[in-house]
């Protein structure tokens, strides 16, 4: 299977946006996600220890989708 031009462009993008600061992976993100979500919802500054969650969410679409769903659910609960 050949890579088409669009796939090559995507790979370049994946390479350029890679961040070695993403150290927690999906499991770590899952464990910290609710704390991160609460801080975001309350408009608080996110503690530095939780900033890794933000980095991971930028890199990982599967976790980001779950995070968006969590935020939506939490907002509905609070409403």
């Amino acid at each position: 299977m050949k890579l088409d031009a669009k796939q090559i462009a995507e790979l370049i993008q994946l390479t350029a946006t890679a961040r070695s600061e993403d150290t927690i992976g999906c499991n770590g993100c899952f464990e910290l996600m609710d704390q991160f979500a609460q801080a975001e919802l309350e408009g608080r500054d996110v503690p530095e220890a939780l900033e890794v969650v933000r980095v991971h969410l930028e890199q990982c679409k599967c976790c980001r989708d779950e995070y968006d769903a969590l935020l939506t659910a939490l907002r509905e609960i609070e409403a």
């Binding site: 790979l11 390479t15 350029a16 946006t17 890679a18 961040r19 993403d22």
Partner: peptide, 8 residues
């Protein structure tokens, strides 16, 4: 992730 970082 490791692949992306290696390439970068």
């Amino acid at each position: 992730h490791d692949a992306r970082v290696k390439l970068k």
